[in-house]
């Protein structure tokens, strides 16, 4: 027992330890609550992802279908050429929001309103190209939303993991160790008390014998 966990068996130390354990317990409870809240947020986002992903994948596969028709009609190279000539430049505005102290991105598409017409020449290209373009524009909107949600899910998951680790550290390492220290000090103090008691008894007996 003299491994002693590095504490002196004094009453002062005992009081300090009790205080620490109360604090650790409080921290533990708070972190637990944070974890619960994070899990709720996380599931909210997962539910959203499920929907958005379904939409995104559907519109994307439709868009690829349109693209195949387009490539078949006007040629693969020509399609790529049209894609490269595209004037419309989709840009994103990314802001950070804070969810439970976790920064998650908030993404918005801001479409360039100045170039409503595609960059390829209308004359000399076919309607299938327009169709493919429209389908991909739609798919991209879904995909951007999906990217935002996935990034949020990853950020939350990382925070969740970190919180969980801290909760576990408190629960399984720090608090038990403090409890063990308290137990050690208490037993040591009891021991000292018993020693004193027997010593007094003994002294009393010796004194009495001397007086007789």
């Amino acid at each position: 027992m003299a491994t002693a966990l590095g504490v002196a068996p004094t009453r002062m130390e005992l009081i300090k330890l009790r205080r620490r354990i109360a604090l650790a317990q409080k921290g533990h409870d708070l972190l637990r609550e944070k974890m619960d809240a994070l899990i709720m947020e996380f599931f909210g986002i997962l539910r959203e992802i499920e929907d958005v992903r379904k939409n995104a994948l559907e519109s994307l596969s439709k868009a690829f279908g349109q693209l195949s028709i387009c490539q078949a009609e006007i040629g693969t190279i020509e399609t790529l050429q049209a894609a490269r000539e595209m004037k419309r430049d989709v840009t994103l505005r990314i802001q950070t929001r804070y969810l439970m102290g976790v920064s998650v991105p908030h993404v918005e598409i801001d479409q360039d309103k100045k170039a409503p017409l595609p960059g390829y020449s209308i004359h000399g290209t076919s309607a299938v190209l327009d169709k493919a373009t429209a389908a991909f524009v739609q798919a991209l909107a879904h995909l951007v939303k999906l990217a935002e949600l996935e990034a949020a899910a990853y950020a939350l998951a990382r925070e969740l993991e970190r919180t969980k680790r801290r909760v576990n550290a408190l629960e399984h390492v720090l608090i038990p160790r403090l409890q063990q220290m308290i137990k050690f000090i208490q037993s040591r103090l009891d021991e000292i008390e018993r020693e004193n008691f027997t010593r007094l008894k003994r002294i009393k007996a010796i004194l009495e014998r001397r007086h007789q």
């Binding site: 868009a63 690829f64 693209l67 195949s68 490539q71 693969t76 399609t79 790529l80 049209a82 894609a83 490269r84 595209m86 419309r88 430049d89 989709v90 479409q111 360039d112 595609p118 190209l129 493919a132 373009t133 991909f136 524009v137 798919a139 991209l140």
Partner: peptide
Amino acid sequence: DIDFISGFGLAGVSQL
């Protein structure tokens, strides 16, 4: 691949 970037290029992605 070529199909992939063609599609997203049409949607207005500039960095292909």
